[in-house]
């Protein structure tokens, strides 16, 4: 029993990078902008978040600076694909490369090459009074750090916004049928820009969480494909905030399992255990792409004057 509780208590924080980055992906995707720079933006977020936290002191500042950096990348993507109507995949890939380079460059310039990597303090847990006293559930859900609470509150907020408000309905129409949205007076470009900026900021925060909860320092390989898994997660969850949280639990479970298996003495070479999240994702996608819906206009740019748009 304790073993299970301990496992679940590890899965919850492991979900956070997936939840934050996937909600960010959904936010821009639902407005029709298919961002593929997540992997790079998460690495940038991890680097910038660590550096800001290290030099300015405090993980909150680190998270905010990372979000600002991510938002800036999102702004470039948004302007390039709305005002200039450049190809979303191509701009996204170019930004992936640029952010990857920028992340290492910033770390190298500010920290340099050191024998002992500098460390930041890991996030503290804040048990919620009363709720954390509930057996099992309290220990798993309500004895975590603040970012965990933020990620879940955000997911709920996004779901509420998209499915329970009329602004959310208008917002979703931009990604489904921009021409129809436009004719109803929704500002398609402005919606796409803010959704992409906010979305990219969330992706960067997902990256910034990694050094703050696991290692205390930044390493280049620490995102380890999570940025790509997050895109799979968005498809898997049908671009809906509530399904994505469930999907994140699956990915986080794989993560924790792979880490555990590496430490535990088992007969299988650890490389095969490490493959597990990626192989499992591939298999799950076979089913996901059969039933999951995606925004009708995902990945396409809107041109008011073209008959083909919508």
């Amino acid at each position: 029993m304790n073993e299970v509780v301990g496992f679940l208590a590890l899965v919850i924080p492991a979900m956070v990078p997936f939840v934050l980055a996937a909600q960010g992906t959904i936010l821009s995707g639902r407005a029709g902008v298919f961002n593929v720079s997540q992997e790079g933006v998460m690495v940038l977020g991890a680097s910038v978040g660590f550096l800001a936290s290290f030099t300015l002191g405090g993980n909150t500042i680190g998270l905010l600076v990372a979000a600002a950096a991510g938002g800036l990348v999102g702004l470039i993507l948004a302007l390039a694909t709305t005002a200039l109507r450049m190809d979303q995949f191509v701009v996204g890939l170019a930004l992936y490369f640029a952010t990857l380079g920028l992340a290492s460059l910033l770390y190298r310039v500010i920290v340099g090459v050191t024998l002992e990597p500098p460390l930041i303090e890991l996030l503290e847990t804040y048990p919620i009074p009363l709720l954390s006293d509930i057996p099992i559930v309290g220990e798993v859900l309500f004895d975590q750090d603040l970012v965990v609470y933020f990620a879940f509150a955000l997911s709920f907020g996004l779901w509420w916004f998209m499915y329970r408000t009329s602004a959310g309905l208008r917002f979703r129409s931009v990604g489904e049928n921009p021409k129809a949205a436009d004719s109803l007076g929704v500002n398609v470009f402005r919606t796409r820009v803010w959704a992409t900026v906010a979305g990219s900021a969330l992706v960067a925060m997902g990256g910034a969480y990694l050094p703050m909860v696991y290692t205390g320092t930044f390493t280049e390989g620490m995102v380890a494909g999570r940025g790509w898994l997050v895109i799979a997660l968005a498809f898997l969850g049908g671009w809906r905030p509530h399904y994505v949280v469930a999907g994140a639990a699956f990915f986080a479970g794989m993560d924790v399992l792979a880490l555990r298996a590496q430490v535990a003495d088992i007969a299988i070479p650890h490389q095969f255990v490490m493959m597990l999240p990626y192989v499992a994702t591939l298999i799950v996608m076979i089913f996901a792409f059969r039933w999951a819906r995606q925004p009708g206009f995902l990945g396409n740019n809107y041109d008011r004057e073209s008959r083909l748009s919508g």
Binding site: A224, W228, A232, M275, Y278, T281
Partner: peptide, 10 residues
């Protein structure tokens, strides 16, 4: 895009 990227990690 996803399947080819994930196969890199495998």
């Amino acid at each position: 895009i996803l399947s080819t990227v994930l196969l890199n990690f495998v």
